[in-house]
Design a protein around this nucleic acid. Structure first.
Length: 203
DNA sequence: AATTCGTCCAACCGCCGTGTT
DNA sequence: GAACACGGCGGTTGGACGAAT
């Protein structure tokens, strides 16, 4: 039978949001809340799909959003969480107040993934990678990696240098603990309660 | 100065889980 | 129980921008 499209394509606008659209969405949600995304575009006078509205609100317009790059602590938390629950970006985001799943996902894909690879860790499984030709003389891959990391921001923009200035040893050490801890969890994803208790214990 | 490359991030798409009829 | 509607999630894309060449 097939699902119907999420919204009728007729007259539905796509692409970047204008300031005016943002204003409409904010005004509507501030006065009415987002009770029903399906009806919202019409009621708010927007020619947008419900999904587009929800995404715009949650990823960009929400008043409690934190903008900018993740701090070192936040990044560390993302890495640890990811090691335990995998690509559950919304769950990870829920542990980082003011951060969105989209933002975290973006940061993971552009930054953290590469860092982990450099550290000799498979970003997908959080397990140590098989030795690459480049890493041949570092059986303990994490040790040399931490040095790499400290040099790494070279390719990053200047914004990055600011926030990453304090990185290095914490990252590698955490990677080691993750390797150990991820061992017991293997592929067993933690549910929310387990996750909570895990972090409760670690804090 | 022009081009290429890498990074950042907003936005879209398709699928899934769940609640309702 | 099946069909449907809806909200939400994760993967991916593409444009803007700055740095490097």
């Amino acid at each position: 039978m097939g699902r119907q499209p999420c919204c009728d394509k007729l007259g539905v606008k796509k692409g970047p949001w204008t300031a005016e659209e943002d204003k409409k969405l904010i005004n509507f949600i501030q006065t009415n809340g987002h009770c029903c995304w399906r009806a919202l575009p019409k009621l708010a006078g927007l020619r947008r799909c419900r999904k587009s509205c929800r995404l715009r609100w949650t990823n960009y317009l929400r008043p409690d959003l934190k903008r900018g790059l993740l701090s070192h602590d936040e990044e560390q938390l993302v890495i640890d969480l990811h090691a335990h629950i995998g690509n559950k970006w919304s769950k990870i985001a829920s542990r980082l107040p003011g951060r969105t799943d989209n933002g975290i996902k973006n940061h993971w894909n552009t930054h953290i993934k590469k860092k982990l690879v450099k550290m000799g860790i498979d970003p997908v499984t959080s397990q140590p990678l098989k030795q690459e030709p480049n890493n041949t003389d570092n059986p303990n891959s994490t040790s040399s990696v931490s040095n790499d990391i400290s040099k790494e921001p070279k390719s990053s923009s200047t914004k990055n240098v600011e926030t990453n200035g304090t990185t290095t040893e914490d990252e590698s050490s955490s990677a080691v603990t993750r390797q150990n801890s991820s061992k017991d969890s293997e592929n067993n994803l933690l549910n929310d309660e387990e996750l909570f208790s895990y972090f409760h214990d670690n804090n």
